[in-house]
Measured scan of single mutants.
Amino acid sequence: MPSETPQAEVGPTGCPHRSGPHSAKGSLEKGSPEDKEAKEPLWIRPDAPSRCTWQLGRPASESPHHHTAPAKSPKILPDILKKIGDTPMVRINKIGKKFGLKCELLAKCEFFNAGGSVKDRISLRMIEDAERDGTLKPGDTIIEPTSGNTGIGLALAAAVRGYRCIIVMPEKMSSEKVDVLRALGAEIVRTPTNARFDSPESHVGVAWRLKNEIPNSHILDQYRNASNPLAHYDTTADEILQQCDGKLDMLVASVGTGGTITGIARKLKEKCPGCRIIGVDPEGSILAEPEELNQTEQTTYEVEGIGYDFIPTVLDRTVVDKWFKSNDEEAFTFARMLIAQEGLLCGGSAGSTVAVAVKAAQELQEGQRCVVILPDSVRNYMTKFLSDRWMLQKGFLKEEDLTEKKPWWWHLRVQELGLSAPLTVLPTITCGHTIEILREKGFDQAPVVDEAGVILGMVTLGNMLSSLLAGKVQPSDQVGKVIYKQFKQIRLTDTLGRLSHILEMDHFALVV
């Protein structure tokens, strides 16, 4: 994948999101292997301009796509893939009243899908469409860049269908997702969380590099694949309309690839034109409109599966009536509230959605109805927002919020430890010299600072030695090549209790 991002070429006709291997024109390309080798690009942008032909009021008969309808489940399912879809609609009884809503608040519980998330729908649909058009064949390999849930859905379907599955996901995604993927037989590649989507090191860039190296491999490409919004247009939206008897006044959905909100909203605009569509985008993402909503100094966020630093091709923002931004604290607070007060075992993005819903639905009156999409299960986040310690460490809970008995030293300040200034190293000294210094002084790690004293990161003896043994660096290389740029900081005025929580999850903390 090139470091400079080429513009994806656009073909003359058809839909841009065809499933299957992508040609340089962004659509299915038939021909000899030699032709494909000559024409197939190194990668295709996940934010390529959409060429979708959908228009409100256009006859369904003019759609270029294969459409399906929700099917009634048999008493005995032939395999677990038949437990994807037909998820329950559940009334939220307490939270709406707590925040003064007059309307009825309903939750579409997508964590009841077989793999635990709304992404099971698009995973199965992308595979079925690729099999139907002859792209996927027995023994082929599926590769997908994902925040985890699409990966789980694909790995689940691949396990049943017999495909090899490789999932490329950023490091910030939970260990629970990784464990589930491994249990399903998927191979996992992790990428830096802070890598831009168009960087060769991003999950998108690495996935395309693997595709170019592995024979008979395919990126189904949830960011561009029409099967993504079509899955929701054909099934999720129809289920909502049936469950609500066609009567709903507002739908609120958090947005990642945009397939969920695009597919549902398009069908609702056709069948229930008075329904307002509300999009939820986390602070630090750029999906919301108008652009002024996205202006923030924050560039990272903890909530998973929603928000991006690019506009995915499948996201149709014209069908969203209003956007709201959400933050991590309210997302996790509301997710825990949904679990504790409503018994809905949902993930953090569901918290984002409901946090926005109780604001947006203030305009609705008694007798009206708001539906929220709860995308995934708490299963993926047992060591994250479900953990009091994690919430404390991230600053989303305060010590006084917890009532468990603490040891005698818990409320003492870090400054009472009488710490001395640490050994520091410059980023320009060599790895070999740094190892000598650390061994001589008896230290395992040291902060790396520039000549102005600005902290650049941390270097550890173990990481340097393993990097040297693996051949990633040489003793003569500058130590700046092996620094940890993500590390926890703590102030002298913070409590030892807070430091204790940090050290339970990290090997060190830097006192500043």
Rank of each mutant, 00 (worst) to 15 (best):
P2S: 10
S3A: 09
S3G: 11
Q7P: 12
Q7V: 13
A8P: 01
A8E: 08
G11R: 14
P12H: 14
G14E: 08
P16V: 01
P16T: 06
H17K: 03
H17A: 08
R18V: 10
R18P: 05
G20S: 07
G20M: 15
P21S: 13
H22G: 06
H22R: 11
S23L: 01
G26I: 01
E29W: 13
G31W: 12
S32G: 06
S32P: 14
P33R: 10
P33V: 13
E34V: 09
D35Y: 11
D35K: 05
K36T: 07
K36V: 06
K36F: 11
E37Y: 12
E37P: 15
K39Y: 01
K39M: 14
E40F: 13
P41A: 07
W43C: 12
R45M: 08
R45Q: 10
P46C: 05
D47L: 01
W54L: 06
G57L: 01
S61C: 12
S63R: 07
H65I: 05
H66G: 08
H66N: 06
H66I: 15
H66Y: 12
H67V: 15
T68I: 12
T68D: 15
P70F: 05
P70R: 08
P70H: 08
K72S: 01
P74M: 13
P74R: 15
I76F: 01
P78M: 01
P78T: 09
D79S: 09
D79P: 01
D79W: 05
I80V: 14
I80L: 10
I84T: 11
T87G: 01
T87L: 05
V90Y: 01
R91I: 07
R91C: 01
R91V: 05
I95C: 08
I95D: 03
K97S: 14
F99C: 09
F99G: 12
F99S: 06
L105S: 01
L105A: 04
L106F: 12
L106W: 11
L106C: 15
A107G: 15
K108I: 01
C109D: 01
F112G: 09
A114V: 08
A114Q: 11
V118R: 04
R121F: 05
S123W: 06
L124K: 10
R125W: 10
R125C: 08
R125I: 01
E128A: 01
D129N: 15
A130K: 01
R132W: 05
D133S: 05
D133Y: 13
L136V: 07
L136H: 01
K137V: 01
K137H: 09
K137G: 07
P138M: 05
P138K: 14
G139T: 08
T141K: 15
E144Y: 04
E144M: 01
E144C: 06
P145L: 04
P145R: 01
T146G: 06
S147Q: 01
N149L: 05
T150V: 05
T150A: 01
G151A: 03
L154A: 10
L154I: 05
L154P: 14
A155L: 07
L156F: 01
A157L: 04
A158R: 01
A159N: 11
R161S: 15
G162L: 06
Y163V: 01
I166V: 12
M169S: 01
K172W: 01
M173N: 01
M173W: 01
S174A: 09
S175R: 06
E176W: 01
K177V: 01
D179R: 06
V180F: 01
V180I: 06
G185L: 01
A186S: 01
R190I: 01
R190V: 08
T191R: 01
T191W: 01
N194K: 14
F197I: 12
D198W: 05
S199G: 03
S199C: 10
P200H: 13
S202R: 05
H203G: 01
G205W: 13
V206M: 11
A207F: 01
W208V: 08
L210E: 01
N216V: 03
H218S: 01
H218L: 08
I219R: 03
L220G: 03
D221C: 07
Q222Y: 01
Y223A: 01
Y223V: 01
Y223L: 04
R224W: 01
R224Y: 01
N225F: 01
A226S: 06
L230Y: 14
L230S: 07
L230P: 13
A231E: 01
H232Y: 07
Y233S: 01
Y233A: 01
D234R: 06
T235P: 01
T236D: 03
T236C: 05
D238Q: 01
L241C: 07
L241G: 07
Q243C: 07
Q243V: 07
Q243I: 01
L248I: 11
M250A: 01
L251V: 09
L251S: 01
L251W: 01
S254Y: 03
S254T: 08
S254W: 04
V255K: 01
G258E: 05
G258N: 04
T260L: 05
T260H: 13
I261R: 01
I261T: 14
I261A: 10
T262F: 04
G263V: 04
G263K: 03
K267A: 12
L268S: 01
K269P: 01
K271A: 09
C272F: 10
P273F: 03
P273M: 14
G274W: 13
G274F: 14
C275N: 01
R276A: 14
